[in-house]
Simulated scan of single mutants.
Amino acid sequence: MTDAYNEEVLARIAEGLVYTESEAAFQSSRRRTEQIFAYNHTPPGEAERRRSLLLAIFGSVGERTVLLPPFHAGFGSNVHLGDDFFGNVNLTFVDDVDIRIGDGVMIAPSVTLTTTGHPVHPSRRVDFGRFSEPIVIEDKVWIGSNVVVLPGVRIGYGSVIGAGSVVSRSIPPMTVALGTPCRVVRDITDEDLTTRMAKSDHDDDREGDRVG
């Protein structure tokens, strides 16, 4: 394929239009499959090797990054991690386009961040027809266990996503959101500064406290 053809495909991908596996095959060199395998099989004590592998896998990596293996990524090179990131086991990045994660983000076990979906009509899924839209997770977000974040979603600063949620639309900053589909249940306020630190009679009754 010519450079002009590849640029045309990339433009369609950037617009969120349908493209096929064959059309996107020229991007295969950006997949970090071998490095991901190596990371997932690196002993816990080899912190420097793990760090060097993360730098080789991801598009950018902040300081003090913790990512517990195993993790999975379609490319790896389309993922950008901020400072003080913590990712628990079985984190999956479907990163056909960018996934950008800010500083101080915590992600619980078995979370999937998928930038890619497929058309509803089967005739449009020939040759793995698909569309992709970037995901943005802003600073200081906490995502609970078994959450799925779908294409094009932005999760705002400081927000919390409850365990088991399917996030199909963007979530505003400083809110607790949960459910399938994920919806905001309340704001995060200064009252939450005492939650779990000073026991009171109403602590067990607050909707959205048990999210992880």
Score class of each variant (00 low, 15 high):
residue 121 H to S: 13
residue 122 P to G: 04
residue 123 S to E: 04
residue 123 S to K: 14
residue 124 R to A: 14
residue 125 R to K: 13
residue 125 R to I: 03
residue 127 D to M: 02
residue 127 D to Q: 04
residue 127 D to R: 02
residue 128 F to I: 01
residue 128 F to L: 07
residue 128 F to N: 10
residue 129 G to M: 09
residue 129 G to I: 08
residue 129 G to T: 09
residue 130 R to D: 04
residue 130 R to A: 15
residue 131 F to D: 04
residue 131 F to S: 06
residue 131 F to H: 09
residue 131 F to N: 04
residue 132 S to G: 09
residue 134 P to G: 09
residue 134 P to W: 09
residue 135 I to T: 12
residue 135 I to Q: 01
residue 136 V to G: 05
residue 136 V to R: 15
residue 137 I to L: 12
residue 137 I to N: 09
residue 139 D to I: 01
residue 139 D to F: 00
residue 139 D to G: 02
residue 139 D to N: 05
residue 141 V to G: 08
residue 141 V to R: 06
residue 142 W to R: 11
residue 142 W to S: 14
residue 143 I to S: 05
residue 144 G to R: 05
residue 145 S to H: 10
residue 145 S to F: 02
residue 145 S to L: 02
residue 146 N to S: 15
residue 146 N to W: 07
residue 147 V to Y: 11
residue 147 V to E: 08
residue 148 V to Y: 01
residue 148 V to E: 01
residue 150 L to W: 07
residue 150 L to Y: 07
residue 150 L to G: 03
residue 151 P to N: 09
residue 152 G to T: 11
residue 152 G to N: 11
residue 152 G to H: 08
residue 153 V to W: 09
residue 154 R to E: 12
residue 155 I to R: 03
residue 156 G to P: 05
residue 157 Y to F: 08
residue 157 Y to S: 00
residue 158 G to E: 07
residue 158 G to L: 07
residue 159 S to D: 01
residue 160 V to L: 07
residue 160 V to Q: 02
residue 160 V to K: 06
residue 161 I to K: 04
residue 161 I to Y: 04
residue 161 I to C: 03
residue 162 G to W: 02
residue 162 G to H: 02
residue 162 G to S: 04
residue 163 A to S: 10
residue 163 A to N: 05
residue 166 V to G: 06
residue 166 V to K: 10
residue 166 V to P: 06
residue 166 V to D: 06
residue 167 V to N: 07
residue 167 V to Q: 10
residue 168 S to P: 08
residue 168 S to G: 14
residue 168 S to I: 13
residue 168 S to C: 14
residue 168 S to F: 10
residue 169 R to M: 11
residue 170 S to C: 06
residue 170 S to V: 05
residue 171 I to Y: 03
residue 171 I to G: 00
residue 171 I to C: 01
residue 172 P to Q: 08
residue 172 P to T: 13
residue 174 M to V: 03
residue 175 T to I: 10
residue 175 T to L: 02
residue 175 T to E: 05
residue 175 T to N: 01
residue 176 V to P: 03
residue 176 V to G: 07
residue 176 V to K: 01
residue 179 G to K: 05
residue 179 G to Y: 05
residue 179 G to W: 06
residue 180 T to Y: 02
residue 180 T to S: 13
residue 180 T to L: 03
residue 183 R to L: 04
residue 183 R to E: 14
residue 185 V to D: 02
residue 186 R to S: 11
residue 186 R to L: 08
residue 186 R to H: 08
residue 186 R to Q: 10
residue 187 D to Q: 15
residue 187 D to E: 15
residue 188 I to T: 07
residue 188 I to G: 10
residue 189 T to S: 15
residue 189 T to L: 13
residue 189 T to W: 11
residue 190 D to L: 12
residue 190 D to A: 15
residue 190 D to G: 10
residue 190 D to F: 09
residue 192 D to C: 12
residue 193 L to Y: 03
residue 193 L to W: 06
residue 193 L to I: 06
residue 193 L to R: 13
residue 195 T to V: 11
residue 195 T to I: 12
residue 195 T to S: 10
residue 196 R to H: 14
residue 196 R to P: 03
residue 196 R to E: 12
residue 196 R to K: 12
residue 197 M to C: 03
residue 198 A to W: 07
residue 198 A to T: 11
residue 199 K to P: 06
residue 199 K to W: 10
residue 201 D to R: 12
